[in-house]
């Protein structure tokens, strides 16, 4: 094994570069580490990054640009970092352009999961993400952009089982991912479905995509339909749910001798 004593220093360096807004340089430092100490050292460094830093770094390499970090970050560390992905969204933004946010989330997750050809790693990534609440919500966001197709797949899976279904009428981007999840982690798949369709009772009612106009219909009609269909959450709702799950950093313990703050009362 290489000289590990340098790793904390490298982690510190990467953290600082990322926080300084320079992911390219951070990536360069990661590459250098890989050359000098090998991939395992990089895995170790990435695994020890604080999740919000990892999130910031990974999200700057979404889409076309490939990054060593994308390929090497331990699945668990990625799952942790996913919690912070929504940290920069504000509510107006979610209200105004949910599609853009959902798309950026898709680019990130797709890049992570399908960036690797190693099926084992792919499964590990999915399992790690689905082991968290925010990961489940994040996938629910993606699927809600293609709710009709997901319903079709869900019904197929329900009727035929995950491994026999697969062909759908749609070529929507999220479908391969949905199938991948349904095959590798059935329990996770169900949890995502329940995240989108909280009222779903398998076998009793049918899934129904959320639609803006229908929600304003008169109540009597709605109630009747609710017993028949399980209404889905909209992408916007799910984005808000995801935003709410971003962990807020615990307030640093008050210094010894510090007084409780008056807050706004200083103007009273």
């Amino acid at each position: 094994m290489t000289d590990r004593s340098q790793l904390p220093a490298i982690r510190q360096q990467v953290t600082e570069l990322v926080l300084a807004g320079s992911p390219e340089h951070a990536e360069e430092a990661i590459n250098e580490t890989a050359e000098k100490f090998g991939d395992l050292a990089v895995v170790e460094v990435l695994g020890e990054l604080e999740p919000q830093v990892a999130s910031l770094h990974l999200s700057s390499f979404d889409g076309g640009k490939m990054s060593l970090a994308t390929l090497l970050i331990p699945p668990k560390a990625w799952a942790e970092s996913l919690a912070y992905f929504a940290a920069t969204w504000d509510e107006d933004w979610i209200e105004d352009e949910p599609e853009v946010l959902a798309e950026s989330l898709f680019a990130h997750i797709h890049g992570m999961v399908f960036g690797t050809d190693d099926e084992e790693r792919r499964a590990e990534l999915l399992n790690a993400a689905l082991a968290t609440d925010w990961g489940t919500t994040a996938f629910a966001v993606l699927f809600s952009t293609a709710a009709e197709e997901i319903i079709e797949i869900a019904n197929d899976i329900h009727n035929l089982g995950a491994h026999r279904s697969g062909s759908t009428t749609s070529d929507h981007d999220v479908i391969p991912m949905a199938l991948e999840i349904a095959r590798t982690n059935e329990e996770g798949w169900d949890r995502i479905l329940f995240e989108i369709f909280p009222d779903w009772r398998p076998g009793e009612n049918e899934l129904h995509a959320a639609s803006e106009e229908e929600s304003d219909d008169d109540l009597g009609d709605e109630e009747a339909r609710e017993s028949e269909f399980a209404m889905g959450r909209s992408t916007k709702e799910l984005l808000l749910r995801l935003r709410k799950q971003v962990p807020s950093k615990a307030v640093a313990p008050a210094k010894k001798g510090a007084r409780p703050s008056l807050g706004e009362d200083i103007f009273s």
Partner: peptide
């Protein structure tokens, strides 16, 4: 210590 607290305040 006093300086630190004062700074925060």
């Amino acid at each position: 210590q006093a300086a630190g607290i004062l700074f925060d305040e």
